[in-house]
Amino acid sequence: MNGQPSALTVFVASIIINNILLTNFLGMCSYLSISKSVRPAAGLGMAVVFVMTITSALNYLVYDLVLLPLGLEYLRFIAFIVVIAATVQLVEMVMEKYTPGLYYLLGIFLPLIAVNCAILGVSLFMVIRQYSFVTAVAYGAGSGLGWALAIVALAGLREKMKRSRVHPALEGPGITLIITGIMALAFIGFSGMVPV
């Protein structure tokens, strides 16, 4: 584990510098489709932070305690996706029972998250980069926050965009991608803030 960045560094870096959406392009599908207004975007963002933190911890444990000792690393895709799907189901059930308010806020977004590639991506990246447990959880939480930040910012921009005239063929996904490009350009300005 020599030369590994500290958990705090990874946390900050994954929010703004190595933003999972703007530099690794993960979670684009829901990012494009649920960013038309701020409220649902914020709800989805919160749900992603929540699920990403939990699944990065669980997947770390599954990988380290089950797959590695048994030499079954190649099964990690299946193991991770099952853990994620199960976690989403479980979180949904627990939330419905104990925090109905939060459930109604996030409820419809939870099933969507199971197929959000950012969640699986975080688990795969943390294995490839050989993070320790604490760092992996910090990375999961930071990536979730970074994703939420990006989708809320985009939703804000798109709300303002409703009044602008866009070329008909560029409307919708086209212009959204170009706005995202400009956002990614702006986020490059953060690089160098934290030594990664």
């Binding site: 392009f25 991608l177 170009i178 995202t180 490009g181 990614a184």
Partner: peptide
């Protein structure tokens, strides 16, 4: 990364 977004948008 920004180039990817611009190119896909275009």
């Amino acid at each position: 990364p920004p180039g990817a977004f611009f190119m896909l948008g275009i």
